[in-house]
Design a protein around this nucleic acid. Structure first.
Lengths: 397, 397
DNA sequence: AACAATTTGTTTGTTTATTGAACTTATCAT
DNA sequence: ATGATAAGTTCAATAAACAAACAAATTGTT
């Protein structure tokens, strides 16, 4: 327990409100902040003074010679200072990992790409990850806050509460307490979560989902991963492993899925599904990228395989729309082209099949960060924790 | 906006923390509250004094002659006083409505059952509802707080934010601003929501889901309605109409559903589905209750129809478990018997098909309030709003 | 029966962050 | 220059929590 209020609590609360307002709405003057938050000018001045000292915020002392509107003293523009510190985001993939150094607005400053060999053990991979992160930290510019934390996005089941990778089948990792391992090595706050969850957070805070409270992020790859944000909160469920909409049954008599179930969406709408379908039609084995390339060249079979995937994706997402009523669905995929057709098809199937759509349609579009979704999202995860105010969880029972 | 902190805010916050602690953990002494909340004894004393005055709380002055443990002054047991006021919950059904008068712990004190005729218009029905509610209010005992509000559970799409029934196909109601109509008539706070959402809240606060943070409530009737509580919050989505898992596609080539989609779960696992299936097998038309009765008598066809529904329910719920990672699934149905077999079957299918289950199993059981789920839940909806403290939604934008 | 020990609950003064109002600073228009 | 207006600061008042001392109630011990 503990989340009761005292003076410190409300100080933190208001400070956090002001800081977060600036974070996403710079520049703002003190008076403007006062108007938007309802705090008095005096309170805002005090908080700003503190934030200036901590360098989270900068005064645009250039006293903008913006001529124009209105008599009276000019407002001093205050800006959130993204350069006050760094975050590190790690995208852990099946045969690679990528370490990003970002500023406090999740702008990527440096990228480190590494491959993981087939023969590398879990320990080996983690050791190399630690080394690269340490290198990245040392190479980063000095800032008032330094590196505020490290986030990791993982393709698999992650208990984000305890910071444990429960099972990442593609990585062949199981029961790895990655958070505590990294925290011990790095002496920094570490956050880990599923790759799609992290992607959802990144897109919702800094990407295509900015300002939208209910967002579904869908990452289309070998499998299908989803991260769902409802009412500005990522859904995590009892053990922090919610969000596996890719294993929603679409045909209860369908083929077996690696997850043990039958007829999962993933079997019909992932890259793997496209490749398999194309193989069925042409008896040729092609990579996903090649199928797309073929499609662009006018190959009817490739087109068919992709359209089928889009259709099924629409079917699955229609269920999801009925269930969760999101305002926005973001799709992150590795299409080089032809993506717009897929989006359109998906969107159409959803509006045909979801009976909620007429009342509250869900927009479908591509994610903003593409292949960087996971890495940037991992950073966003850290920032979210760092900048979240005290959450009064009163009436918890 | 506005959710910033000042003295009043923290007073409310702490008051709400103490009150809610007592609400679900009476009796407690002042010191015990202090220990559990982290507030000082002095603060707790002050808050309790206020709550005693408002009669939300009572002192057990009987100075329990409980002999026993420990030296020192005996603690004064404090109890939440459910009789401080009343709530009214309305279960609006297809051909009936039911008005419940409850105390502040959602204990049902009086029940008014009314039928709605085929020929009654929406206006007629609402007028009668208003009359019965007014009657119920007048008939209720006098209490310090009186009736604190009215909740209504509705079988259809409800925009709970705006308090509007968007579409209740079975009722043939569309675009009804029920909340404002009732508030104008009754001069009381009114809350409306989908029947299953309301049921979920009721069961999670006062029924079989007490203390569980992640609960799925599934109401099995003509259709399938679901209410989902994640992290102690009901999911509502962008327009407040989330929760329609009954229209999840289970077979994308399945028969047409009234919702416009194909192969929805509802077509395979609702009462209607059982009736239809039984008809297919025997060419006899029987009510749901009759099918159950036949099953109890050993009718193999009836058994088959019910088992099939249970199987499909399991298939659907396995997807839902993968997607939302709930700790508990509560099923509210109108079985008179044989329910346990269904639950067991559902549970088994889920554990076979959900790959999340080994890491975080979802318990399946029957709801506590049965046919009262909706009415009690409607009351719980009001209580939840009434007793929820100030929610700091800091870092929003 | 008196008294120490112990625990509950109250009283009192201190601390702290917000508020509101008065005040200073800066800018434009006449 | 002067008045009007808006931005930002200063300062006393307020309110709620806190910490520590105190009062009350109960048991066990001499």
């Amino acid at each position: 327990m503990r989340a009761t209020g005292d003076q410190t609590y409300i100080k933190n609360l208001n400070r956090s409100i002001v800081l977060n307002l600036l974070r996403f709405n710079s520049p703002l003057s003190r008076v403007e902040i006062s108007r938007q938050t309802g705090l008095t000018k005096a309170t805002v001045s005090g908080i700003i003074e503190q934030l200036l000292q901590e360098q989270y915020v900068l005064e645009d002392s250039h006293v903008e010679p913006t001529g124009s509107t209105g008599v009276g003293r000019r407002p001093v523009p205050l800006r959130f200072n993204p350069s006050a510190g760094h975050v590190i985001g790690v995208d852990l993939g099946v045969d690679y990992f990528r370490v990003l150094v970002m500023d406090l607005s999740c702008k990527v400053l440096t990228t480190y790409d590494e491959t993981i060999g087939e023969s590398d053990s879990t320990d080996d991979a983690i050791r190399r990850m630690v080394d690269i992160i340490k290198l990245a930290i040392h190479a980063a510019n000095d800032t008032p806050l330094g590196v505020i934390g490290v986030g990791v996005g993982i393709p698999g089941l992650v208990d984000s509460n305890r910071g444990v990778i429960l099972n990442a089948p593609n990585l062949h990792w199981k029961d790895v307490s990655l958070r505590s391992i990294l925290e011990n090595e790095l002496r920094l706050p570490v956050f880990i979560d599923n790759e799609a969850n992290v992607g959802a957070i990144g897109e919702q805070l800094f990407g295509a989902g900015r300002g939208v409270s209910n967002v579904v992020f869908l990452s289309l790859g070998r499998g299908i991963g989803t991260g769902v944000i409802l009412n500005n909160h990522l859904i995590r469920g009892q053990a922090g492993i919610a969000g596996e909409f890719g294993h929603m049954t679409i045909d209860e008599n369908g083929p077996n899925c690696s997850c043990g179930n039958k007829g999962c969406l993933e079997l019909y709408a992932s890259e793997t599904a496209v490749i398999r379908h194309y193989h069925q039609l042409t008896n040729t084995t092609a990579s996903f990228k090649n199928v797309i390339r073929q499609m662009e060249k006018g190959d009817e079979n490739a087109k068919k395989a992709v359209e089928s995937a889009a259709h099924f994706l629409g079917v699955g997402l229609a269920s999801l729309v009925n269930a969760l009523n999101p305002a926005l669905i973001l799709i992150s995929s590795r299409f080089d082209s032809g993506e717009e057709n897929v989006i359109q098809r998906v969107s159409q199937v959803i509006s045909e099949r979801s009976f909620i759509a007429p009342y509250s349609p869900a927009r479908v579009q591509t994610s903003q960060f593409g292949s960087f979704s996971c890495g940037i999202g991992a950073g966003a995860l850290v920032l979210q924790a760092h900048f979240s105010g005290p959450d009064s969880q009163a009436y918890s029972s």
